[in-house]
């Protein structure tokens, strides 16, 4: 039987420390937030309700749901599709074929074309980000201003000395994916295909100190993700379930509504 990768996030264990998001940025060389694009393949949505002292705070990690019925793949107009389902169930992207029409961003119920300021407070997020046409990617690293003139190095100088863009670039090789994207293409979580193909776990899973993220093959009953799914059958949740996208990211929480 072919593989069907999936992830379970145990919200009993997740404290919202953000290690997953940082590990992801580091692993996949994603840019800093700019122009309404978060470039956060692993992100959070957050909600604060009520009036002190009766308040309630919910934080939920979000990432590409690698949907079985992926709207991003359906709308991709390119032949062969730039956004496509791989044999292992993950949703992957080919930047050589991507023309940057952004229809995937528009169609994905978990993505926004442009994020507003509310996204800084975690009110919304976008799992697909776009590298603007005609704008250099990793543009922050071209900045020549020194924070303390004559004392600290500028971003551009760091790049020059380190010889990478970004300076700490992680040069991975992963099928269709390049470690740093070019202008005019979209980008999103690829379930760390470059690590998983070598028998490793995705970076966010490795980084989680609480082991709240469980990744594996859903078609293998002995895999950790299958076990977690089976053990929490009744309370298992998926984000925006009613959109009919059949996400392959599952949330575990036995009380209240975990989704923000």
């Amino acid at each position: 039987m072919s593989k069907k990768y999936g992830m379970a996030i145990d919200l009993h264990k997740c404290v919202g420390c953000g290690a997953c998001a940082l590990a992801c940025k580091n692993e996949n060389n994603t840019e800093a937030r700019s122009d309404g694009q978060s470039h956060n393949w692993a992100d959070f949505v957050m909600k604060t309700e009520g009036v002190f002292p009766k308040t309630r705070y919910t934080q939920m990690p979000v990432l590409c749901n690698h949907c079985s019925e992926a709207p991003c793949v359906m709308v991709c107009p390119v032949t062969p599709k730039a956004m496509f389902k791989a044999a292992d169930g993950s949703t992957l992207h080919n930047q050589g074929r991507c023309i940057g029409c952004r229809q995937c961003q528009d169609a994905c119920p978990y993505s926004e074309l442009v994020l507003d300021d509310a996204s800084n407070r975690g009110e919304n997020s976008s799992v697909i980000s776009f590298n603007l046409h005609g704008k250099k990617t990793q543009s922050a690293w071209y900045d020549k201003t020194e924070l303390i003139p004559g004392c600290t190095a500028s971003a551009a100088e760091v790049v020059q000395k380190a010889g990478g863009l970004p300076p700490d670039v992680n040069q991975f090789k992963s099928g269709d994916y390049q470690p740093v994207r070019k202008a005019g293409v979209v980008e999103k979580c690829i379930f760390c295909q470059h690590k998983v193909a070598n028998g490793e776990q995705p970076a966010c899973v490795e980084a989680c100190p609480a082991e709240a993220r469980i990744f594996g093959d859903q078609n293998d009953a002995a895999s950790n993700v299958s076990k977690v799914k089976a053990a929490n059958k009744k309370t298992l949740m998926r984000y925006k379930e009613d959109e009919g996208t059949e996400p392959n990211v599952f949330y575990v929480r036995s009380y209240g509504d975990p989704t923000v």
Partner: peptide, 9 residues
Amino acid sequence: TGCTGCVGL
């Protein structure tokens, strides 16, 4: 809408 899709197309 300024989506710049046509720039890519």
